[in-house]
Nucleic acid binder design. Structure first.
Lengths: 385, 385
DNA sequence: CGGATATTCGGACACTTGTCCGAATCGTAT
DNA sequence: ATACGATTCGGACAAGTGTCCGAATATCCG
């Protein structure tokens, strides 16, 4: 799994429901039927042949009008335009592709659509692709149906495929082989380490180094790590960043860091952060700074600390990761690491778009995007206790 | 525009950047090239003809294998399967459609991909469509290119189109005419009031009635309205809900409600909420409850109040709308209105899926989804001052 | 009205696939 | 070796579109 746990249905339903909400179907749904004008007597146009018949011109003539060829009377062109207005005829893109035209479609495969960072990347990528006149076919990757996703994209003759999130590395080898066999370019966004895959990913090692150096500069020497127990590559990279930063100052990882991850379930990250903060307090606050895996955990930790009467950042500093909008909503505002998603997505788009229509590169390209530390008010100089 | 202002690039970049981040290109991006195995000598297979040649069978025989027809030797079937493994051959979906097969694709057109409620609806809709073996082609609607979106969907012969968000009502009439002419079913999610459109929308009137009745039951009689100045239908509906609830208790809207919307720009809703709360305090706190248009504004208002030394809910109650995850992250947790998106999306999916392959309904269908009030800790009995 | 030019017509082909069908080939039993 | 049933072959067609091209028609000028 990724940095985010799977979505929980009804996670925000924790309050008391006063009205509605028994969650058993549509009986809660009112049905209204409004009046409307009767349908006009325009025939169903399903092909250029039928359309030409409707206009009263030869199919070839209509085709020439639609494709802007010269040698046509203005009157003829107007007649066709008029008929398009009337019938809403649109040529079949599938037939065009069969004639050799590119589909101008990019497949986007995501781990999930339920986490903010991934949907934000989707949004950025879609915008970029649209600007380049490509449309986006989306699929969510599920461990079982993964192969079907790729095969479906290939059957749709997408010009390229982008994968966003974290995927099964073993299955991925098979996908890459299929993509290579079909000369379809690809890029993997934010899953570093897939062998043979073109990859654009945030340098999470460096991100955590930034965080740690910032805290070390503020005089912190003991750190509580919140949520770093995972074995996913992106988590391991962050731990490595922490290790390296500490090593850079001659400090020992095992002596400087503490973790209470094993004490609590990780369902809702915000809640998880709160529980971790409480364990931290209960265990005598053995650190001056809490370093969280992501913003949600950090925000939960801030809340948890405050509920225990611990001041942030006067008593304890807290850091997040991802620099989501949430960072501005905590009190104090949260120091975090910005993913520079625009950079990531832009580089990924460049990577696939530059390969479309050309022979595939023999060697995979890996691009690392450097994150940026955003310092806000949740971090301050370490206080002697 | 909708309830949400347009996305602001770099909205979360408000802190001090210590590292990286001059925002001028890719020089920040390191490039690594990893080694890989040389490409194998498997030919590019572009059609079933080429594939059959590769296998050494007749194209028709291969086709029969691929489509599971009887009367084939096991050895032949195995040979084909083997060749698929080797070449990654996938039949062209475009040719299949030309043979009359449905595209099994639904177009999803969104106002934007940058707001949580809309992307969440996208996620839910995509999951439902996928469960029904449809794939999702997405486009973002921009006032200028709107017509192209619909025409593109039609040229892609999508089986249906779903619109999510708020759209230009005048342009929409044209879209509906085109959809009708092409016998393509549609549904509009959450933009109530488009003439002739099949619509599924939250009953925002009722939502605000729930909020107001809840507050009225708690003894509140004066209300600060945060962010209700917009003229969009969804905003007007909410104001109507407030009016109706007050009228139901014999109270006068103009005497009971206050607004400071005109005093502040609405860029970032969270910030906007904070500014509104401060105006509320500066103007002598003429209300006992603040009713916000959405959760972000409410969260900002809570923060703003607290910064001014006003306690929530002891001194002032605050309510949100949408019941996002954010509601659990404020202190105190935020009373809000749940959109019941699962209901909405499910009803919308039913509406379009039930129409695919059948003649279009003559009259548009409008379904209202009843929201649910979720009471948390940001609302309490009105305090005499 | 004759002739020249400008348009339009309509048949043909290609793109890829699934299916039909008669002909050819394989495998096996006699 | 022959015959028969089981497979496979390969030509043909259809789907919708763009393009080519010779033939047909419309338009214009004198």
């Amino acid at each position: 799994m990724s940095e985010y746990p799977p979505p929980q249905r009804g996670r925000t339903d924790a309050g008391r429901h006063l009205t509605g909400g028994d969650g058993c179907g549509y009986h809660r749904v009112r049905l209204l039927v409004s009046t409307s004008q009767p349908p006009k007597s325009i025939p169903q146009i399903r092909s250029s042949t039928e359309f030409a018949r409707y206009v009263g011109l030869a199919r070839t003539t209509v085709s020439r009008v639609l494709n802007g060829q010269p040698g046509l009377k203005k009157k003829t062109i107007d007649r066709v335009q008029q008929a398009i207005q009337e019938t809403g005829f649109v040529p079949n893109a599938y037939a065009l592709h069969l004639k050799g035209k590119r589909t101008a479609t990019v497949g986007i495969c995501m781990e999930t659509l339920f986490t903010p960072p991934i949907t934000r990347k989707l949004a950025l990528l879609q915008r970029r692709l649209r600007d380049d006149n490509f449309s986006s076919l989306i699929e969510v990757y599920e461990s079982g149906g993964a192969r079907n996703v790729v095969r479906h994209f290939l059957s749709m003759r997408v010009d390229a495929i982008a994968f966003i999130g974290h995927f099964d590395e073993e299955q991925f080898a098979g996908h890459l082989a299929e993509l290579r066999a079909n000369a379809t370019p690809h890029v993997v966004i934010d899953h570093l380490g897939i062998k043979g895959a073109n990859t654009v990913a945030l340098d999470r090692v460096k991100g955590m180094e930034f965080v740690m150096n910032h805290l070390l500069d503020l005089g912190h020497r003991t750190f509580g790590l919140l949520g770093f127990a995972g074995t996913v590559r992106s988590t391991r990279d962050r731990v490595r960043g922490i290790r390296q930063a500490l090593a850079g100052r001659g400090l020992d990882f095992d002596q400087c860091t503490f973790s209470w991850d094993h004490l609590h379930p990780r369902n809702n990250d915000f809640e998880f952060g709160g529980l971790l903060a409480k364990s931290f307090v209960v265990h005598g606050r053995p650190a001056t700074a809490l370093v969280a895996l992501n913003d949600e955990i950090a925000a939960g930790a801030i809340r948890g600390l405050q509920e225990q009467g611990v001041r942030v950042p006067a008593d304890v500093s807290v850091t997040g990761f991802n620099n989501q909008d949430l960072c501005l909503m905590t009190t104090p505002e949260l120091t975090s690491v910005d993913q520079r998603m625009e950079e990531t997505v832009s580089a990924a788009a460049d990577l696939i778009l530059s390969q479309i229509g050309k022979p595939l590169r023999a060697r995979p390209v890996v691009r690392m995007v450097e994150p940026a530390l955003v310092v806000r008010d949740s971090t301050a100089a370490a206080q002697a206790r």
